[in-house]
């Protein structure tokens, strides 16, 4: 089952496309990271997946074909929006009550126990909780619904490192214990390395990279060699080339089995390094074809 499936999805605000020609399928059972610079269309994509925005072009379904925003879709998705908007004048207990009334499933016992664990007083108003506590409360409300899919829009952007760590730990626990699929958008790259096992890179409103993290890492190599001999490596698709006085660094699509030209060294790359290379070369990068799309064109191929 694909938790999010988009084909030719586009969203236009006025004359600018926030997202265009987005075709992707995020399979269930992953913590998928949606990465991209500000304005790349991450929030737009998530909003359309949860029904808060209607597509200008194409279509998007969730949880194996449920139309985005339909009652069946909303029932299975828990969405934590950017800056975790909450009714500031309601207490944490009221927020639990509210969410319980608005959904089929709500695990009051789990929610209360988790808030107690986090030291969040039930009687305190949501507006008087710290940023980290608000984020944790929002996440608790989302998880207590027992969703099939958890969508998090920039969940840790406003949090300090400890709160960020705790938040992500909660997400991973839920993922491990219950098999919740997670799609989160973030521009905090360092965090992703630890949590994400599926990666989508959005750039200028288009999908640039999509695939499992392990596959992506295995299919990219950093080649280092003499600056004058760059042409010898031209056999592989080059993602990024950095040429110094003496040495050149080249991120290429290649596996460990591919032969390395004489005089060059090949190193595996880290996720952060890989993402940065793609983000720095939004135009030049050819896309590694999303392996999970069988019937669709590889998306994000540059014109």
């Amino acid at each position: 089952m694909n938790v999010i499936e988009a084909s030719g999805l586009g969203k236009r605000y006025g004359s600018t496309w926030a997202l265009r020609e987005c075709t992707l399928a995020i399979p269930a059972g992953h913590v998928a990271a949606l990465v991209g610079p500000n304005g790349a269309g991450k929030t737009t994509l998530l909003n359309m997946a949860v029904g808060l925005a209607t597509p200008s072009a194409g279509r998007v379904t969730v949880l194996g074909g449920r139309p985005a925003g339909s009652l069946a879709a909303l029932d299975g998705i828990a969405f934590v929006a950017q800056d975790t908007p909450m009714y500031k004048n309601l207490s944490a207990a009221d927020m639990l009550h509210l969410t319980r009334n608005l959904n089929h499933r709500f695990d009051q016992h789990y929610a209360e126990a988790r808030l107690a664990d986090l030291g969040i007083p039930l009687k305190r108003k949501a507006g008087r909780l710290s940023g980290g506590q608000q984020a944790q409360l929002a996440l608790t409300l989302a998880l207590a619904r027992h969703p099939l899919l958890l969508l998090l829009d920039e969940p840790v952007a406003m949090l300090d490192p400890i709160a960020r760590h705790d938040f992500m730990a909660t997400v991973l626990t839920a993922m491990a214990d219950e098999g919740v699929s997670v799609v989160l958008s973030s521009h905090v790259l360092a965090e992703l390395e630890r949590v994400a096992d599926y990666l989508i890179v959005l750039s200028r409103g288009q999908v640039q990279v999509a695939g499992e993290v392990d596959d992506l890492l295995a299919s990219h190599r950093m080649l280092t060699g003499p600056a004058g001999e760059v042409a010898r490596c031209a056999g592989r698709p080059v993602v990024q080339l950095r040429r110094g006085e003496v040495q050149a660094h080249m991120l290429v699509r290649a596996t460990a089995d591919n032969p390395v030209p004489a005089g060059w060294e090949a190193h595996p790359v880290g996720l952060e390094e890989l993402v940065l290379a793609y983000l720095r070369e939004p135009g030049a990068a050819a896309l590694p074809g999303p392996t999970l799309l069988r019937d669709a064109e590889p998306s994000g191929v540059t014109q």
Binding site: V50, G51, L74, F79, A81, L102, N103, A138
Partner: peptide, 18 residues
């Protein structure tokens, strides 16, 4: 104005019913 619609409209109840 406060953005809480992003919470309210994504609950299982459904937004127009809400």
């Amino acid at each position: 104005e406060t953005g809480t619609f992003r919470y309210a409209w994504t609950q299982g109840f459904g937004r127009w019913r809400w």
